[in-house]
């Protein structure tokens, strides 16, 4: 049922055919006058955006969203997003077009579909934003030109945490020929660990639905290490105070992209809103003050490569 798909040209076609599919709702002035800002954040995605035991929305992105809304003098309305197969899908479902099943927002937009004003935790990648895909007859068309990626606010990295009672240090990945390692399925760590060294680690890789489940398996001794994003691992380490669970400094030379920047996305037509938000976040990032938000969740803030000069 679909190799992970990136080429979503048909939706561009739909857009062209049905002007109702376009998202020109909430121009800047109207947005400011409305009294609220709708921010897209991923559902159940600690430490970035999730609900705590009391049912309150918390997380790094939730706090950043709250800060933006406060600075704009607007109420924050969170738009919880379920991730689809890849980023292009999420941008379509939650930012520029709306979800195919949503027909209940006629009062907002001609298409009847709800979209966010701004989406957080969007990788900042010019190559992605300006990627072209072949659509036939010699034409290469822009594939993600309905949105703009802006304002990198964090650098994300793949990391490895391990149980030092069972494995003193994971200096190279070769030790995972002998130790089971947990990963979230369908992620780069899963791909990488099952394919490096001619697949020799394959039998030691344990797949889980989430990093939290993989981490729990490490706590229970089922796996020796977990590989996931730095933010996720630091959050989980902070939740499980233990002397034996440690963040490793293993490097992964076989991995294509080890670091990437995280920023925001707005619709192409809403650049003005994007600039406004840049005006709010950029001073925090340039001064490093944004790190205090990350610290609340036990996460180290790393300056985006964009600013690291």
């Amino acid at each position: 049922m679909g190799i992970n798909q990136r080429v979503f040209l048909p939706f561009l076609l739909v857009l062209t055919l049905l002007s109702a599919g376009q998202a020109f709702s909430r121009p800047y002035d109207e947005l400011l006058a409305s009294g609220f800002l709708r921010v897209g954040v991923y559902e159940n995605f600690p430490p970035y955006s999730f609900k705590n035991a009391d049912g309150e929305a918390v997380g790094i992105d939730v706090d950043i969203a709250q800060h933006i809304a406060d600075e704009m003098g607007l109420e924050l309305e969170l738009f919880w997003m379920l991730p689809d197969e890849d980023l292009a899908d999420d941008l379509r479902n939650y930012l520029w077009r709306g979800h195919v099943l949503d027909h209940d927002h006629k009062h907002e937009r001609l298409s009847g579909k709800k979209v966010a004003d701004v989406m957080l935790r969007v990788p900042y990648d010019r190559n992605f934003n300006y990627a072209r895909g072949y659509i036939g007859q010699g034409v290469y068309a822009y594939q993600n030109d309905l949105i703009v990626m802006m304002m990198p606010y964090q650098r994300e990295t793949w990391k490895l945490a391990h149980n030092s009672d069972r494995l003193e240090a994971a200096r190279t990945l070769a030790v995972f020929q002998y130790h089971p390692i947990g990963v979230e399925m369908e992620t780069v760590p899963a791909f990488m660990l099952t394919s490096v060294f001619n697949g020799n680690l394959r039998n030691q890789v344990r797949h889980f639905r989430s990093p939290a489940q993989a981490f729990q398996a490490m706590v229970e001794g089922e796996v020796t290490a977990v590989m996931a994003m730095r933010g996720e691992l630091e959050w989980l380490l902070a939740q499980h105070a233990s002397d034996s669970l440690k963040m490793g400094d293993t490097t992964f030379p076989a991995m294509g992209k080890q670091h990437w920047d995280i920023g925001i996305a707005v619709r192409e037509a809403d650049r003005q809103l994007g600039y406004h938000i840049e005006g709010i976040l950029e001073p925090l990032v340039m001064s490093g003050e944004i790190a205090s938000i990350f610290e609340r969740y036990g996460v180290t803030w790393e300056v985006p490569a964009f600013y690291d000069f």
């Binding site: 992970n4 798909q5 990136r6 990627a131 992620t187 994003m229």
Partner: peptide, 19 residues
Amino acid sequence: EDVTYRKGAAYLGAGFTIR
């Protein structure tokens, strides 16, 4: 292709086109 992402993470995707 490696210029793709999933839920805020880098991802190795397959690009394809049907002809």
